[in-house]
């Protein structure tokens, strides 16, 4: 696909466009990393988009009242972690289905945010856009942070005992419990991590503009779930890789730009993405069955 694009549309991979693409991918990738852990642990998190929006508002408001950006960003990440921990508590300890819990927290967060901010943009943010650096430097900081998070997560999934526990829990929670692991702690943990990463994603997205829109993050949950699934994460748990998720983010993210370049009408974007999801999952299942 990428090769087709490169041939069909000279300029697609021109340095300008590539940079725009990369920086656009960064927040989605960070959130999708968290989602991958959630899905591998055989859960789902519908509330990441709403967490994302809440964290974006938190970082913006703190910067406006004079907090230094790094400190405000840390606060946003902790806010995300706390919101994720709430999901985790309900799912891991009250044993409620995660789709219901996170759907509920999604609505509560979204509507709560609307009531609080009335959809108003948050402006006048000192030294906020691109961390107060030049645009070029800022872009590389954003991309660099996303890349570092990705590398750390991929390493953790493979190299940490905790990563192994996530895969075991997702494969079979009861078997994991019988093996002396603590599936409850794993479930709680993946939600908290997903929340923290949603917070970080919100910061990476917010600094790309001079103001923060509390409606940012709408549809985010679907995009990141789609990226993980296209990348081979099985909703039935236990399977999925971060490299796969990276490819999923790249593939789905490129389509939007490709459509512009190919001069198709914009409304085709989501339809094509939907088609790709079906194709990816169907081919994965068929390949698995034939083995």
């Amino acid at each position: 696909m990428l090769i087709v694009l490169a041939v069909a549309t000279p300029g697609f991979f021109g340095s300008g466009n590539l940079r725009v693409l990369l920086v656009g991918f960064a927040p989605t990738l960070v959130a999708a990393v968290g989602m991958t852990f959630v899905i591998v642990a055989r859960q789902i998190d519908i509330s990441v988009g709403a967490q994302f929006a809440a964290c974006a508002v938190v970082v913006a408001l703190l910067v406006r009242v004079g907090w230094p950006l790094p400190l405000a960003a840390l606060a946003a990440i902790l806010t995300g972690a706390a919101l994720g921990a709430i999901n985790g508590l309900f799912v891991a300890h009250l044993r409620l289905p995660s789709i219901v819990v996170t759907l509920a927290t999604f609505f509560v967060l979204k509507e709560g945010l609307r009531w609080w901010r009335q959809g108003e943009l948050i402006r006048d943010l000192p030294a906020f856009q691109w961390f107060g650096l030049s645009q070029t430097a800022g872009v590389w900081v954003v991309v660099g942070i996303a890349g570092a998070v990705f590398a750390a997560a991929a390493g953790a999934a493979r190299n940490l005992a905790a990563g192994r526990a996530v895969y075991a829990t997702g494969s079979d929670e009861e078997a994991a419990r019988l093996a002396g692991l603590r599936p409850n702690a794993v479930t709680f943990g993946v939600f908290a991590v997903a929340g923290a990463l949603a917070g970080l994603a919100a910061v990476l997205e917010a600094v790309q503009l001079p103001f923060v829109d509390p409606k940012a993050g709408t549809g985010m949950e679907m995009r990141v779930i789609a990226a993980a699934v296209v990348g081979g994460a099985a909703v039935s748990g236990g399977r999925g890789t971060l490299v796969g998720t990276l490819l999923g983010v790249l593939l789905l993210g490129t389509i939007g730009s490709a459509i512009v370049f190919l001069r198709l009408e914009a409304q085709w974007e989501e339809a094509i993405q939907g088609g790709i999801i079906l194709l990816a999952v169907a081919s994965d299942v068929t390949a698995r069955r034939n083995r």
Binding site: Y167, S171, A175, G238
Partner: peptide, 9 residues
């Protein structure tokens, strides 16, 4: 098959 080993791992 259900609890003793995790077949994916």
């Amino acid at each position: 098959r259900r609890y003793g080993v995790i077949l994916d791992l």
